[in-house]
């Protein structure tokens, strides 16, 4: 059955291009649902009820399952994308917000905001493997492409914490800009990008020696500095381009990831949180919290081509074949 689905998906890829064949999942923080968007029709086609206050969302290519952190219920819901139903849940520690899947597909790492912890969860045994104490209100979390290092930000402590993925030993703590939200490794694993919500910057650090390579600032004509708040970060597979969601600036910045220059800003819906690229990286989907919609940016044409109404307060986006 799985082979058949994959074969079918392959055929569609050839016919319509990758973006058109896939499905986009959006967590709606205030509705306790996940909206399902058909990438071909660019319309919401289903709504999946999940636990309370869904935010972090990710699709696992290993298991073919969708994971949704439901903070108010202190767990991560597991969604079968075929039946579009919650088929179980995994423990996460208290109030999970963002999580990151390990490249081995067997573990995930999750921030527990209330307890100042990062938990490592075994997806097969469905149990917490261990925890590590970090700063106050851990938030952004990422695993290096080689699977060895976990990067985590703490919002109130304003630090980037680096954790050994296997031993859960806290290796280093680096002061970054105020209220850091997301952390992302570059595809080559050599740099870490960290967004600061209140300073409105992205700090790029070298993994090797934690040296700050660049502090990227954003400026949008007509907007006050305080309206520019960097949140979600997405980096293309070739490592050449990064997209940064700017929250109440209602913009997504496109950044040259080598020179760190901002190439352009896309006007999207209001209070843009997190984003996801289509699998062919020709489109970017953004979750806009205040306008309760998803903006679709056509990256070849460099314009926003559609806004799709979803549930209330969309927060996270995941793309699955």
């Amino acid at each position: 059955m799985q082979t058949l689905t994959l074969a079918l998906a392959g055929a569609l890829l050839v016919l319509n291009g990758a973006a058109a064949a896939e499905t986009i999942y959006v967590s709606n923080e205030q509705d306790n649902t996940v909206s399902v968007i058909d990438a071909h029709r660019l319309a919401a086609v289903a709504t999946i009820p999940v636990g309370g206050r869904p935010r972090g969302i990710a699709f696992s290519a290993h298991s073919g399952l969708l994971y949704v952190a439901v903070g108010d219920d202190n767990r991560i819901d597991v969604v079968d994308t075929k039946t579009r139903k919650v088929i179980g849940s995994i423990p996460s520690g208290e109030d999970p917000e963002l999580f990151a899947l390990h490249p081995d597909g067997k573990r995930l790492f999750v921030s527990n905001e209330n307890d100042n912890l990062v938990s490592s969860v075994d997806l097969e045994k469905n149990s917490v493997l261990g925890t590590v104490q970090v700063g106050v209100e851990p938030e952004g979390i990422a695993v290096s492409p080689d699977g060895r290092l976990v990067a985590n930000t703490s919002e109130t402590t304003s630090m980037l914490h680096l954790i050994d993925a296997a031993s859960l030993e806290l290796l280093d703590n680096v002061l970054v800009d105020t209220r850091p939200r997301e952390a992302k490794f570059t595809p080559d694993g050599k740099a870490i990008w960290v967004s600061s919500e209140l300073r409105g910057t992205v700090t790029v650090l070298a993994r090797e020696d934690r040296r700050i390579l660049r502090r990227i600032r954003f400026a949008v004509p007509g907007l006050r500095r305080e309206q520019i708040q960097a949140v979600g970060i997405v980096i293309t597979r070739d490592g050449k381009t990064a997209y940064v969601a700017l929250g109440p600036a209602n913009r997504v910045a496109e950044v040259d990831a080598n020179s760190f220059d901002v190439r352009r800003y896309y006007l999207v819906g209001q209070r843009v949180w997190h984003m996801a690229l289509s699998s062919d990286e020709k489109r970017l989907y953004t979750a806009n919290g205040n306008t309760s919609d998803v903006s679709v940016i056509d990256l070849d044409r460099q314009e926003v081509v559609k806004s799709i109404p979803v549930g209330r307060s969309p927060w996270g986006v995941a793309v699955a074949p």
């Binding site: 100042n116 700063g135 106050v136 109130t156 402590t157 304003s158 630090m159 703590n173 002061l175």
Partner: peptide, 10 residues
């Protein structure tokens, strides 16, 4: 308490 959570790192 919040200050010391950062302070202990620096």
């Amino acid at each position: 308490a919040d200050n010391n959570s950062t302070g202990r790192f620096v």
